[in-house]
Design a protein around this nucleic acid. Structure first.
Lengths: 307, 307
DNA sequence: TCCGAGCATAAGACAGACTTGGACTCGTCG
DNA sequence: CGACGAGTCCAAGTCTGTCTTATGCTCGGA
């Protein structure tokens, strides 16, 4: 069905024959036996339907059609090796592009170090970074708009909650690190100097929540402690959370990781009980996990998290 | 041994997959089944050593390496079809070149008509013509300087002369026509008005011979008639022969074919006995005889000879 | 005249390609 | 919510193509 086409194999042999002027010499160049060359040329002549070589006792010459084919073969085989080299460069991490999507507090600490190490190890690779919160970042991953998505998930609060991270069944999930939620209260708050705070002690306070998923999780944690938090404000922006808390407008919890890069102005941070963990993971598609540049970047992220 | 290379077959399939976005659609385009496409892509990914496609449930996307390969494949496959088309043009007589070598009296009559018909039938072909006498023309044929050589041979004069045309054993010999040698005597010669001349009647005359082979054959013919001709002049140029004969410097024999294009000034032509034939043939190499343009030109030559 | 080099051919081993048939997943429609 | 269609992968069988070894042939040179 697809057998009447010229194959690259044939052109390589033809080129060797044209270059050396004999089947035996071509066979030596190609590292095979002389009958192999002979048969390849016969097959090529059959597929083109016209003689390509003239066997004249002493020497092997090309017909006009043979010369035309050799002329084309030069360009075709050059393109083929160029393609192989470009692929090899990507596979060998001398080239390659990784588009990374991260949530804000991850990109401020974890990503920069991983990215720096990646660039140092494989200067040819190009890593791009875009910020997006988990629901959107996973969507981008599935739609091919990025290769790696940094996301986080909370463990199930009350026993079996199948929807916690179950939507990642078909993804590769590389755990990076686990951080805790830290309470944030105004400087003058009655609990500002406490060693730790029980979450129930904040039952009556107004709350300032984070992103939708963080907010949902906050509600779950509070409800399992016996109350429903009154949420007055919600914002993704951690400095804004500090500002609101510092202005006495409420209390909040915040990932420990976010504290590394944001200065708590007018607010105090206090560990809360029960300890609530947030697991930060890197996500990618199974096929993409086998792409060298993606795998290397994933390893760098894991390394950066364990440092 | 040669198995780690990218084959054109793979690129055709990859291109179809990239164009259609699915294995099944690509299979329909290519006229094969879906598992065939699936296996080809697996083989290609193995030979490149890196994933090229991402299978994400709904749709089939390319990795960076896959996109690079598709980009190269466009040029490679374009070159391949260009090569196939050029070969097809040569095979289909829409193109092609035939270099013809002829001896002088053949090119003046036979070749022009054959050449005109060839051009009319296959306008894309290019026929070139060079003149050379038989020993040299066959040499050119063997050395690849032409595709067809027009030559002539004389039948054996005395029984078995193995060297007559035996050097053409490895060539394709297409007989075109047979002409006779005609005697040429001065206008005032005692035999100028004869019906025919026995060769023996010219025993005492000085002779004007032609090319080396013609001369050798003349000697053979005369010797088999019982005498050795006294050759005073030898020239390839038929008008010159007529001039010499017309000036009374001797007698000659000349191929009948040559008389068609040369005006006998001051000389008379008379048939000689015994009748001596000269066979005009077209020669080519066995492999070249299968080249369409060469085969077509040979057929035109045969047709022109029989007209 | 013999010998070495080179090509063609035959036969067998082997890999690759294509097919059929079947199971699984996913999105969709009734 | 189950059925269905589309799409993919997997397993096995067939078939073609490719490579090898072994052998015969031709040609040019010693």
């Amino acid at each position: 069905m697809l057998g009447a086409m010229i194959e690259a194999r044939h052109l390589r042999v033809l080129r060797a024959v044209a270059a050396t002027g004999s089947f035996s010499a071509a066979a030596r160049d190609l590292g095979c036996t002389q009958p192999a060359v002979s048969q390849q040329m016969k097959a090529l002549e059959q597929s083109t339907g016209t003689p390509l070589l003239i066997r004249t006792g002493r020497e092997m010459r090309l017909t006009e059609a043979g010369e035309a084919l050799v002329r084309h073969a030069a360009g075709i085989l050059a393109g083929l090796t160029a393609a192989e080299e470009e692929i090899a460069a990507i596979a060998g991490l001398r080239a390659g592009r990784v588009r990374l999507v991260s949530f804000p507090s991850g990109s401020s600490t974890l990503v920069p170090t991983a990215l720096a190490e990646m660039r140092a190890a494989h200067p040819g690779t190009q890593i791009s970074l875009v910020e997006a919160e988990p629901p959107r970042s996973v969507e981008m991953l599935r739609e091919g708009d990025c290769e790696i998505a940094l996301a986080f998930r909370y463990p199930d609060v009350r026993g079996a909650d199948p929807a916690a991270g179950a939507e990642w069944d078909d993804l590769v999930v590389r755990p990076l690190l686990t951080d805790r939620l830290i309470g944030v209260v105004p400087e003058g708050h009655r609990l500002a100097g406490a060693e730790r705070i029980g979450i129930g002690e904040l039952e009556q306070e107004p709350w300032i929540a984070g992103c939708p998923r963080c907010r949902r999780h906050l509600v779950e944690v509070c409800e399992s402690a016996g109350f429903t938090p009154r949420i007055d404000f919600a914002t993704d922006d951690y400095p804004a959370v500090f500002g609101l808390v510092g202005a006495g407008l409420g209390v909040a919890v915040m990932p420990e990781l976010a504290l590394e890069s944001v200065r708590p102005k007018g607010a105090r941070t206090v560990p809360v009980e029960p300890v609530v963990h947030r697991e930060i993971v890197a996500l990618t598609l199974p096929d993409l996990a086998r792409v060298p540049a993606v795998a290397a970047m994933l390893d760098r992220l894991v390394a950066a998290a364990h440092r």
